Amino acid sequence: MSFSGFEQADFDVFKIDGLDERMDALKSQIRPKLEDLGRHFAPTLSSIAGDEMHYHVAKHARRTKNPPKDTWVAFASNSRGYKMLPHFQIGLWETHVFIWFAVIYEAPEKEAIGKKLEENIHSIYTRIPKDFYWSIDHMKPEARVHSELSKEDLLSMFKRLQTVKKAEILCGLNIPREEAVKLSGEEMLSKIEFVFKEILPLYKLA
């Protein structure tokens, strides 16, 4: 395993102006690390999830104007894509590393998933670590920390997933860049594995 951890230069890629310039830096600076993470965690997730998991590194291929503000590797049980399925993500914004369980707006089973989450609201609310985060939009860096949410807040998110076409739900950990750059490769791998195990029950429900 060649993953060496994240460094300031990885986050600084998102300061580069211009689509081509940022994409070139992203491909050379960050993508090899995402490939490493994909190869490392696909077998781990396959083992704990009970499904064969395939990794997908974001290509940002449809972009013609605006440079990407974040990038990621996703893990799903389909070798051809992940957006239609409940999945896991590891990625970066300029400000932080994110490690998510995610159901995004392309998933056709969102209503059924939202109902299962709603039915298990008590166990979810009590077992998710207090310093984990929830998001309702994977395209924005903002997220809400679990310790500051009421059970009613969480229930509202789960109901929204059932009724709003563009609704999403994500849960996991955000690691500020200042903390992330201090972690060795092994320490980051260990933290990511811990997060995946903590959010695995959400994947199992979905």
Rank of each mutant, 00 (worst) to 15 (best):
A42M: 03
A25H: 12
D12T: 06
L173Y: 01
I169K: 02
A107S: 13
M1Y: 13
H56K: 08
E21W: 10
P201Q: 12
R62W: 13
S77K: 15
E148I: 11
I128F: 00
G114A: 08
E35I: 15
A25N: 10
F194I: 09
L26Y: 12
V181C: 03
R31A: 10
Q162T: 03
D137A: 02
F14I: 04
K115W: 12
I90H: 02
I175W: 00
E178D: 14
S4C: 05
E119H: 13
A42T: 12
D20W: 11
E142P: 09
H40K: 11
I30D: 03
A107T: 14
L19H: 05
N120D: 04
R62N: 15
A42G: 05
C171H: 10
E148S: 11
A76V: 08
R127E: 10
F41D: 04
L149Y: 00
K27M: 11
E186T: 14
R80P: 00
R144K: 14
W100Y: 13
W134T: 07
E109P: 02
Y133E: 13
E35L: 14
L155Q: 13
Y125N: 08
E21V: 08
I104W: 06
A107G: 08
F101I: 08
H146G: 00
K182F: 02
I30G: 03
T71L: 07
M84K: 15
V13W: 03
L189Q: 11
L26K: 09
P86H: 06
K110Q: 07
S77Y: 13
L155V: 03
Y55R: 01
A58D: 09
Y55N: 11
F196G: 10
A180M: 04
D36T: 06
K130I: 00
K65L: 12
M84H: 14
K83V: 02
R62K: 15
K116L: 14
F75K: 08
L161G: 05
V97K: 07
K83Y: 02
S150N: 11
G91W: 04
D137Y: 00
H40L: 12
L85Q: 10
E193Q: 14
L170Y: 11
R39N: 15
I48Q: 04
W93M: 07
L149S: 04
L117V: 03
L200W: 08
K27T: 09
E186A: 15
H146A: 05
D70R: 09
S184L: 08
H138C: 02
F132P: 00
I175S: 02
K159A: 04
N66E: 14
D131L: 07
E119W: 09
S28L: 12
D24W: 01
D24R: 15
L205C: 06
K165C: 05
A58N: 05
H138P: 02
R39C: 13
I104R: 04
S156T: 13
Y105N: 07
